[in-house]
Structure formats: C-alpha cells, structure tokens
Amino acid sequence: MSVSRRDFMAMGAAATAGAAIAPGIRLIELAQAKSPEEAVTAAQRWGLLIDTNKCNKGCTSCVDACHTENGIDHEQLKGSDATKPQWIRKVEVKDPNTGYEHSLPVMCQHCQEPPCVDVCPTGASFKRADGIVLVDRHICIGCRYCMMACPYKARSFEHEDITGQKEYAPRGKGTVESCTMCVHKVDRGDGTTACAEACAKEGHNAILFGDLNDPKSEIAQTVRSKATRRIREDLNLDNSVRYIGI
C-alpha cells in the first residue's frame, strides 16, 4: 500500500489520539508534522547547516534544484545576470594568504534579527513564527529598501514579466523575492528543501535541513557538537543558516 506523506498528515488527529495510547511512540516526533489547518509556531525553528568541506567547486546542483522547484528560468529572461533572480548562488572563497580555497552556497540566511524586516515600510518582509524570513508579495511595493539592507545580497527584484510559474511558487514582476526555505515543502512536511535534497542526491550531503529547536534533530545535534559559524557574525543577526569550515 502506498500512502503519500500528505495523506499521512491528514491522519494527524487520529494519529495523535492513537499515539497517546500506543506505547513506543513519542509525541515529540509527531508534533513535527503539522496538519494543514494548524498555524506555524515558534516551537520550530527551521535552519540549514552547510558543510563547506563537502561542497564541491563547480557543482551547482543545489542552485539548479532551487530554480526547478521555484520556476526560476534564466533562459526565459531578457535581462543580464545582474537582473535575473539569484535566490541561491555558489560563492568561491579564497584566502589570499594561504591559498586555501573553498566553495559554498549562499542564500537568504533567515536571520532572526533580519535587517530587511526592520526596514520594510509596509511590513511585506516578515519573519514567520518558525523563523523563516519571507516576502509577502501581496503587499510588497517594490521599493527595494530590503535589498539595500541585506548584508548577503540574498534578495532579488523581479525585473521583468514571468510566465510558466509553478503552482506552489507564484512569482511576478515588480516585487522582491528570495529563498523561502522551500516553505511550501516545509509546510507539507517534506522535511527537506530542494537544495538539500539535490545535494544529498549528488552524494555530497553538504546541506542539512532541520529544526534547530528540536534537540533530537540531526541539525541541532551537529551544531551542538561541531564548530559552526555564520556569515558576518559581527552583525549579530542570529542567522538560521550556519556553515562549517568558513
């Protein structure tokens, strides 16, 4: 029998009732799967951990997967590289003193003190209760102040008309957009993002997605046991995206 993940979630209520009496099942695991009518809460804090030691120079499968998932098609667009959306990009970093080189993906760092949210005049930039930083493109007026404020160049202004959007990723001219941490997948309970999935498929496993608030999760355990850093720690923005090896 094959039951999809979504059907599984629809069973949420029954499952919880069952779990309460069934031995051997911990409630905490079930709490992770949100039913569609539930609002997200601060019980979760989604994050990414990127191990740059495992990230290959020249490999762009995370970028490609992001583009496929979110309907970003650079071929379709008329502008230059600098006007096309860049939700995630590969950055090559070289230490001029030692010659050490490494490669890493940079996307929205989902700061818990996000400068983009502070400056947005309409409140279109916002942080969801579970820590994901998003643009409500229904009230974005396209002023681009958030892009001026972002220390990571993580946001893109949609410079031209788009067609063929994905059902789950509406996008359009004149508003600002950025990595959503695949919020539609997260809400569905996929437990991963397109980039993390693609990286794992390549066998690199450099991107780990998970709930930083859940002490049992792999990401929480890794950040507890290994030295991780965030880009521009000096700004103290409490990013949810962490890196190993930068």
């Binding site: 094959s2 039951v3 999809s4 993940r5 979504r6 599984f8 069973m11 499952a15 069952g18 779990a19 051997g24 099942i25 695991e29 079930l30 992770q32 799967a33 996929d190 437990g191």
Partner: peptide, 12 residues
C-alpha cells in the same frame, strides 16, 4: 509526494 518515512510507517 515523498515516500512515507519511518514515523509515517509507525503511524500507519
């Protein structure tokens, strides 16, 4: 859809 994972199997 993603295939059912371990938790899902338990619930089922």
């Amino acid at each position: 859809m993603r295939p059912i994972d371990a938790i899902g199997q338990k619930v089922i």
